[in-house]
């Protein structure tokens, strides 16, 4: 069955005709060319495909397109508007918070959603959020450091 789905992806509106069974990850990657959305476990376990739907982190691999009709979607490609990196992206670079990079889009979006809710999360909250996504390369120290750096940056910004 074909359906019409309206979504705003990274600020741009799309009226798409899709199969009811198509997932968000495949439409982003194969229709819209947004290959920053990586699919790894295909089971909502690893978080590599994490994207933001109305600001919430969602597993794109396990989300039917019809579920996101009339939603605002942010992918990693939508973060650095005009080529200026966000605080979170900048912090990931500064702390070397990735190696192979396959989990990075999802991690960055997850942290973006966390800091949008709570610019100054305590350690327990950070741990709870970040435990949702898997990085097989780093051992997580550098990612945690990046979250602290980005959150400190936001605090400084807010104070200024």
């Amino acid at each position: 069955m074909r359906l019409n789905v309206n979504v705003v992806v990274n600020g741009r509106s799309h009226a798409l005709e899709v199969g009811a069974h198509e997932t968000l990850s495949d439409v982003l990657r194969e229709r819209l060319g947004l290959t920053g959305c990586k699919v790894a476990c295909d089971q909502s376990v690893c978080g590599a495909c994490t994207i933001l739907v109305d600001g919430d982190p969602v597993s794109a691999c396990s989300t039917f397109m019809f579920k996101v009709d009339d939603s605002k979607i942010t992918t990693v490609e939508g973060l650095a508007a005009g080529g200026v990196l966000t605080r979170v992206q900048e912090a990931f670079l500064q702390d070397g918070a990735f190696q192979c990079g396959f989990c990075t889009s999802g991690m960055i979006l997850l942290v973006t959603a966390l800091l949008a809710r709570d610019p100054n999360p305590d350690d327990a909250t950070v741990q709870q959020w970040l435990s949702s996504n898997i990085c097989r390369c780093t051992g997580y120290n550098s990612i945690l450091a990046a979250v602290r750096r980005a959150s400190a940056g936001l605090r400084t910004e807010a104070a200024a």
Binding site: L34, G36, K38, L79, A80, Q89, F92, L93
Partner: peptide, 18 residues
């Protein structure tokens, strides 16, 4: 390699998967 790293942070890296 900031450029290469930057690509990883902005979703522009090309893996065989892509």
């Amino acid at each position: 390699y900031f450029r290469a790293f930057r690509k990883k942070a902005t979703g522009q890296s090309v893996y065989t998967f892509d």
